[in-house]
Design a protein around this nucleic acid. Structure first.
Lengths: 345, 345
DNA sequence: CCGGGATGGTCATACGTATTACGTGTACCG
DNA sequence: CGGTACACGTAATACGTATGACCATCCCGG
C-alpha cells in the first residue's frame, strides 16, 4: 500500500501530475497549457514539467475536446484511398494541418461502407458516430451530396468547380486540356479522340468541354469521344471504340493516367506503335505515368498543393474568414508518348 | 424571448432533447442508448426519438468518450498512403471495424510530418495530440519502432513477421516467393536475379531468403541480387546492374510490382523483349501489374484481407483475448511476363 | 387494509480538462 | 507604518454524457 502515483485506467491524469508535483490540478493545466506566464513561478513550472515527464502524462483528448468545444481535427473526404492521387492530397493537407496543431482524419465513403457501396453517406455510418468530433471538412471531388447529414459543419470543396456552394480549391483543368490540345496541334494532329471519365463531376465535365472546344477550334479539327470508368480495362474498351472508327483519331487524350494505360493496350492490340502510329496523353501524372513504356505525356496536377490549399482555406473558414475560390495551375509534362501523326497514305 | 429549443453552440444536446420531449436527460440517454428495455414505456421512448429527430440531435462524441473511457476508434499506421496497397488495407480494416461500431483513422508517419520526414514518430506529432483518443493500433510493416510513445495501447502488427512482440497478421510471403521460383524453374530458368527492396524489414528479408534458397536448391541454379528503393527509377538501376552481369539472369524476380516496371525499362533499354528474352515477376498485384505491357506475372497479396484480419485480431485483443499469429495465403498470378528462357547460343 | 413486487422514471454524480474568480503572503511606496 | 499592488497559486465550475441509486405509483394477494 505504498503511495506512488495512483494510476487508474493505465494513464495518469493531470490530477496525478498535480499530486506528484505537490501543486493543484489547475496549476498543472496552466503550466502544460503554456498559460503560466506571470502566474506560476519558473521553479514550480519546471517541477510540474518534470512530474508530467516522469509519469508519462498525456492529456486526455476527450476531456479537452469536451471542455474546449473544439477538436482541432478536420475530416478529409476522398472518393477512394486506392488511388495514389488522394494519398498525396492527404499529405498536403496533413502537413499544413500539423503546422497549426490540427489533425486530419480521412474518410473514403465508397470504400468504408460495410456493404461495399456508398452505404448511405457519412451521416448514417458508424464512422460518423465515432468521429462526430470534427471541426471542419475538406471534401474532394465526386462527393458533393455525400456530405448531407454533417449539418452546419464548415466545408471546403476540392476540384468541384467554382459554382459550388462552399469555398473551393480547383485545378485549372481547362488550362491543362488546352495545353494538351495545343501540344498535339503543334505536332500536327487534327483528329483527336477523347477517352473520358463517365462521371458527372465538374472536373471531368470541364476537361471534356475544354478539349472538345480546343480541338474543334482547329482547322480541320475533329473531336470524338468515348467514356468509361477510371480503370485500365474499361479505358481499353473505350479507346478501342475510338480506334475502330472508320476514320480513327491519330491521338488519344485521356482523362486519367490509368486510362492512358488502357489506351496503350488498345493500341498494341491493333498493332499500333506509340508514339509512331498513335499519340496518347494522360492526366494527373501519378507514378504509373513513368512506369509505362513509352513514358506518358501527361498533365501534372499538384495534388499535395491541392490538399495544402484546401486545408489552408478551411483554417481561414474556421477563423471566421471568407476564403475566396482558389485555382491551382497545372503543368503539361511532355514525355515520350506523343509525336507527329503518321503521314497520310 | 419565446422558448423554443435553446441551442447553444449550434448543436442541440441531450438536455435540449429532454426538454423538448418533456422528460429528463437521463431518460433521453437511456432511450437513445438502447437501454430502455423495461425502464421506459414505449410511448415515452417514441416521444424521445421524435424529439431527437426533430432537433437533429447527434450525441457529443467528446462527452461520450470521456464518460465511457473508450472511443471505439482505432489507429491504422501505414508507411505511406500514396501506395494503393495500403489503401486496400485500410478498406479491409474499416469494413470490419464498421461492422462492430468502430471507426478507423489512418496515420502515415512518413507522409504527415511537417518537415517531410518521419518527424519523430507519432508521439511528438500534433497528430498524436489531436488523436490520443484511440483504443488500439494496427501497425503495418515498416513502422515497428515508430510506435514508441503510444504507451500501453493494444497493438496488432501487420506483415511484420512471427517474431514480433505483439499479435501479428502476416502474409505467407515465403510461399509466394517459392511459388515464383517454382514457376520459373518449371519454365526452365536457372539463372535468376532478384530485384530486392533495400529495407531491413521482415517481409523483405523473408522474400529474399525464400527466393535465394529456392533458386540455389535448383540443379545449376544461380542467384544474384541487387537492391533498390520501391520506385521505378531506382528499380531500373538495380535491374540494370543484374542485366549487365557477365552472365546475366534469364529471369528477374522483383519484390514489388512497381519495381517490375523498372525492370521492364531496364530490359527495353537493352533491347530485350519480355518475355521472349527475359522473364519478369512482381509482387503485390496492384493495378500497375495489369497496366504494364505485357501484363505482369506476380504474387497477389490479399491486402484487404490483411486489414480485415488485423482489425479482427485487434478487436479480440480489446476484448481481453490473446489472438494467436495469423498467416494469410498468397497466390501466384501467371500473366504474360514469364516464358521459357531463350535457347542458349 | 397493508406489504410488496412491478413499472416508469428522475437525481446525482463522475469522467478529465481549462479557466474564471478568488485568496494569500510579501515588498514597496507614500 | 498603513495601504496596496504584485507575484503566486488554488477552489470551484462547466462542458455533455451514461449510469447506479433512488423514488413514486399502481396493482394485487393475503
Amino acid at each position: 500500500m505504498a503511495s506512488g502515483p495512483r494510476i487508474r485506467n493505465g494513464r495518469p491524469t493531470s490530477k496525478d501530475v498535480a499530486q506528484e508535483a505537490g501543486v493543484s490540478q489547475s496549476t498543472v493545466s496552466l503550466v502544460l497549457g503554456g498559460k503560466s506566464a506571470g502566474r506560476v513561478s519558473p521553479a514550480t513550472a519546471r517541477a510540474v514539467q518534470e512530474a508530467a515527464e516522469r509519469l508519462g502524462y498525456r492529456p486526455n483528448a476527450a476531456a479537452r475536446n469536451l471542455r474546449l468545444g473544439t477538436t482541432r481535427t478536420v475530416l478529409l473526404v476522398v472518393p477512394t484511398l486506392t488511388a495514389p492521387f488522394f494519398g498525396s492530397v492527404y499529405i498536403g493537407a496533413a502537413r499544413v494541418a500539423a503546422r497549426h496543431g490540427f489533425g486530419v482524419v480521412v474518410y473514403p465513403p465508397d470504400d468504408a461502407g460495410p456493404d461495399g457501396g456508398t452505404a448511405g453517406g457519412p451521416a448514417g455510418s458508424p464512422f460518423a458516430a465515432a468521429h462526430e468530433a470534427i471541426d471542419g471538412i475538406i471534401a474532394s471531388s465526386m462527393t458533393r451530396e455525400a456530405l448531407r447529414g454533417f449539418g452546419p459543419t464548415p466545408v471546403v470543396m476540392l476540384d468541384s468547380g467554382p459554382a459550388a456552394a462552399a469555398p473551393t480549391v480547383d485545378f485549372a483543368v481547362e488550362d491543362g486540356m488546352r495545353a494538351v490540345a495545343a501540344h498535339l496541334a503543334a505536332l500536327g494532329h487534327r483528329r483527336i479522340g477523347h477517352v473520358a471519365v463517365a462521371l458527372d463531376e465538374w472536373t471531368f465535365r470541364a476537361r471534356g468541354e475544354a478539349v472538345a472546344a480546343a480541338v474543334r477550334a482547329l482547322p480541320g479539327g475533329r473531336y470524338d469521344r468515348a467514356a468509361g470508368a477510371i480503370d485500365v480495362h474499361s479505358a481499353r474498351e473505350a479507346a478501342g471504340r475510338l480506334l475502330d472508327l472508320p476514320v480513327p483519331p491519330t491521338a488519344l487524350v485521356c482523362d486519367d493516367d490509368l486510362m492512358a494505360a488502357g489506351a496503350y493496350k488498345a493500341a498494341r492490340a491493333r498493332g499500333l506503335d506509340i508514339p509512331r502510329d498513335l499519340s496518347v496523353t494522360g492526366f494527373d501524372d501519378v507514378q504509373v505515368a513513368v512506369a509505362l513504356e513509352p513514358e506518358l505525356t501527361t498533365v501534372r496536377l499538384p495534388a499535395r498543393e491541392l490538399g495544402a490549399q484546401g486545408m489552408s482555406a478551411l483554417l481561414d473558414l474556421l477563423e471566421g474568414g471568407r476564403p475566396g475560390p482558389r485555382s491551382l495551375p497545372v503543368e503539361l509534362v511532355v514525355r515520350a508518348s506523343t509525336a507527329p501523326p503518321p503521314p497520310r497514305v
